[in-house]
């Protein structure tokens, strides 16, 4: 349970950071940015991403607005001739506050965890070398 929550919170941090850095983005663009920036190490699958966006929107951390776009694949979806509705998200003031808190919590967490992790092997080597 905690595990799931932690993953979700990290995903939240990533999404809010992206919107803060990049300005408004839509769902698919977010998923591409995430895997692009992390060299594919981090993936937000659409089955997780879209419900999470909905949740963040319900919480008032991001707000969405719909834009009509015309599909360039009309032959594939002839009935959608009126166009697709793309939903753009932007960070709200509340989202910015949450982001700050998340970043702070993340840093604290990292600092605390670092206290438990054995010294960096590089450090170790240098010490050994120095003796």
């Amino acid at each position: 349970m905690l595990h799931k929550d932690a993953q979700r919170d990290q995903a939240e941090l990533v999404i809010l950071s992206l919107l803060d850095a990049q300005g408004p983005l839509y769902g698919y663009a977010i998923s591409k940015e995430v895997s692009g920036r992390s060299d594919g190490q981090l993936r937000l699958t659409p089955g997780v991403l879209y419900p999470l966006l909905k949740e963040l929107e319900s919480e008032g951390l991001i707000s969405g607005s719909v834009e009509e776009v015309h599909s360039d694949r009309k032959e594939a979806a002839p009935d959608a001739a009126e166009g697709r509705k793309r939903k753009w998200y932007r960070l709200t003031a509340r989202g910015r506050k949450r982001l700050a808190a998340r970043i702070e919590a993340h840093r604290t967490w990292r600092r605390v965890i670092d206290l438990f992790i054995a010294r960096d092997p590089m450090d170790h080597d240098q010490k050994e070398h120095g003796r």
Partner: peptide, 27 residues
């Protein structure tokens, strides 16, 4: 997932803050 996302925020909001707060408070 969408249904939970639609309903859950009130509960989550508090948990989130607790998690954020707890992490720093514990430290």
């Amino acid at each position: 997932r969408f249904e939970r996302a639609h309903v859950a925020p009130r509960r989550r909001r508090i948990m989130n803050m607790l998690m954020v707060g707890l992490a720093s408070a514990a430290a």
